[in-house]
Design a protein around this nucleic acid. Structure first.
Lengths: 182, 182
DNA sequence: ATGATGAGTTAGCAG
DNA sequence: CTGCTAACTCATCAT
């Protein structure tokens, strides 16, 4: 049994109905001035990636396994080991121009493989950020949703109190008018 | 006297303030009784699958190409007849028990391949429904969000009018009380 | 076994 | 080419 409408309810945190309604007006400012629900934040769904390292030792247990031991990139004499000269890290992060320079010194087939691997590695991180973006956007929607529900509840409560208040004034007016009738 | 506090907001579509506030109360019922925002529908995110047919001719352009041209497949070696006996459709839809019966008549390797393919086909549709579910859930959140924004706007408008209404009654009370002072 | 989901791969579109 | 994303496959977890 929710005695929502009894005015005697001092348990409410706003013991001001009727004689003092400043608090209501303040709250009104708070809400009515913030007139556009569309303007709710919602813009914090970026800056989440930051990959760069994270050696994907066995990315999917099926990716082409190029043996990368670039802990101390060995710019050694021979280019015999060809593809080993370029770490995965360089492969993705080097500007394409710089990469092409290095690839020119390699056999065509080798170069092609490396380009393909570059694309795969890049796609891998695109996929990762795509997923993170989706998750972030979902969370954001849920948060916004919760905020809206809370606001709605609050505004409804204010409305309820305002109506009680108005009804009291109305009754008082009618009583006073009754006195004049006599 | 009444020229002072007559309602100037005739431009509003609710020309009832002060003297007639039934509409407000009706709207109040509409909103306050629907007290729990948590109870908004949100349960229509199912019944979306319904695959069954739709020959995925080239599912990803990379799936194992089983030659499903049973009209007259290419019988170059012995094993071809065998696997062609079971269509992809049967492969996914037959109860496992029934399928096993049929597989018993086939070479082990063949049977293993078919089991694996069954798993792949099933996973394909699991993935599809997973994706659809995600999309549906997202849309649902967005819709709910829009509804909440609309409701909030509406309740705020009602509150605004109610406050105007209350203030008018309050002014009137003060006026009447002033008359008694003399 | 079945179903669900994170992650890697591929195709294909957009810039 | 770069970046993004739908769809597929695989690994893994839970039932």
């Amino acid at each position: 049994m929710n005695s929502e409408w009894s005015v005697e309810e001092d348990s409410l945190s706003h013991p001001m109905l009727f004689s003092d309604f400043q608090p209501l007006d303040e709250l009104l400012d708070t809400y009515l001035l913030e007139d556009d629900p569309e303007s709710i934040p919602n813009h914090h769904l970026k800056e989440l990636i930051g990959d760069s390292g994270a050696d994907p030792s066995q990315p999917h247990l099926c990716a082409a396994d190029n043996n990368h031991a670039e802990t101390h990139s060995s710019p050694h004499t021979t280019q015999d080991f060809s593809s080993d000269q370029i770490s995965d890290d360089d492969l993705v992060n080097l500007p394409i121009q710089e990469l092409n320079k290095r690839l020119k010194t390699l056999p065509r087939a080798e170069a092609q493989m490396l380009r393909k691997r570059r694309r795969i590695l890049k796609n891998r991180s695109y996929a990762t950020s795509c997923r993170q973006r989706r998750v972030a956007s979902d969370e954001s929607l849920k948060e916004q949703n919760q905020r809206l529900k809370d606001q709605l509840r609050e505004v409804k409560e204010i409305l309820r109190k305002t109506i009680v208040d108005r009804n009291l004034y109305k009754s008082k007016c009618e009583r006073l008018e009754g006195l004049f009738q006599r």
